[in-house]
């Protein structure tokens, strides 16, 4: 409590008066910042670890005699199931709080984004709860993903039309 007050006083000493006009820059000066470097390193390590696990699963299926193309699909499914179970057990949110983008960006994060609201809205029933809310976090990702894919495909088509 006391340390924070002193830290704010220290960082805000350049501001003689705080008013509506300079409040935004004042708050920016005194507030604690995200530790970007630490977050990036943690995201890299945890995200990388998830990819290594995925690769191990692929190699396992290849070892069992599955073709490499099919094995990648199997690996994605396995990761999705593992993440869904970890979400249900209440573990994945703790990983996410620690790893940030490292656990959000891989396919496991997508699984978490679908399962978490499904659990949360189960109380409102299967149709109005789970049915309507299941994709409210992941939905925008799908919409934007599809939209951007169309734009990229158009650009590619135009490129090959004239070259």
């Amino acid at each position: 409590m006391k340390e924070r007050e002193d830290s704010v006083k220290e960082k805000g000493r350049d501001f003689n008066d705080v008013n509506m006009q300079n409040y935004k820059s004042y708050v920016f000066a005194v507030m604690p910042k995200s530790k970007h470097f630490k977050n990036i390193i943690l995201a890299f390590v945890v995200g990388g670890l998830i990819c290594v696990i995925g690769q191990l699963i692929i190699e396992f299926f290849v070892f069992l005699g599955v073709s490499r193309v099919d094995a990648t699909g199997h690996a994605s499914s396995c990761l999705i199931v593992i993440a869904a179970i970890l979400t249900g057990l209440g573990v994945y949110d703790k990983i996410g709080r620690f790893a940030g983008a490292g656990s959000t960006i891989p396919i496991t994060g997508f699984s978490n984004a679908v399962v978490a609201p499904a659990i949360e809205y189960r109380c409102e029933g299967l149709i109005y709860g789970v049915g309507t809310r299941m994709f409210f976090v992941a939905g925008p990702v799908i919409v934007n993903g599809v939209s951007i894919a169309i734009v990229v495909a158009l650009v590619r088509w135009l490129f090959f039309l004239y070259c």
Partner: peptide, 17 residues
């Protein structure tokens, strides 16, 4: 948390503020 932010089990990094 459910009303103002995200589902409980969603793994997101919390803002330092």
């Amino acid at each position: 948390e459910r009303q103002y932010r995200y589902p409980l089990e969603l793994g997101v990094l919390r803002s330092p503020v």
